[in-house]
């Protein structure tokens, strides 16, 4: 496996489905981030066959848990002083704004374009979210 030097301080976004790294890059707007970013594509993975990885050097203030709307299986490794200090899955955010769009044609958001699309976590176990206006269901993949 191609090795990009380890991080001194930063975050490794691991277990991204192969081909998904750029979507995350765009979603987190990493282009605008003034930090070293390494994207590793098609790394081999026992669990997934192929996977993508993103490494970001430096302190991170972005809320990575919202990545759950893209790929729920992602893991996050937090690195400090060359060591992994935290390794975890994504925590589903309680509330997401303008990330999931409500598709219910009877919902008020269908006629009022300026309303934010807000979904609240309804069931953590199953990853089910509901539109705060009409309770339309959305399940994280």
């Amino acid at each position: 496996m191609l090795n990009i030097g380890g991080l001194h301080q930063g975050v490794v976004i691991d277990h991204i489905p192969a081909g998904g790294a750029m979507r995350i890059y765009d979603y987190l707007n990493l282009d605008a981030l003034d930090a070293e970013v390494a994207i590793i594509k098609n790394a081999s993975s026992k669990k997934m066959g192929r996977k993508d990885i993103i490494k970001i050097e430096g302190p991170i203030t972005i809320d990575l848990d919202t990545l759950a709307v893209l790929y729920r299986g992602i893991t996050i490794n937090i690195i400090e002083n060359d060591e992994i200090v935290e390794k975890r899955g994504l925590r589903l955010p309680e509330r997401v704004t303008n990330i999931i769009r409500c598709k219910n044609p009877r919902c008020i958001t269908s006629i009022e374009q300026e309303l934010p699309h807000v979904f609240k976590l309804a069931d953590e176990k199953t990853g089910v979210y509901r539109c705060i206006y009409c309770e339309e269901r959305f399940k994280m993949k």
Partner: peptide, 10 residues
């Protein structure tokens, strides 16, 4: 009263 769901919440 509103024909669209969630209007009173808004």
């Amino acid at each position: 009263r509103h024909p669209k769901e969630g209007a009173p919440l808004v």
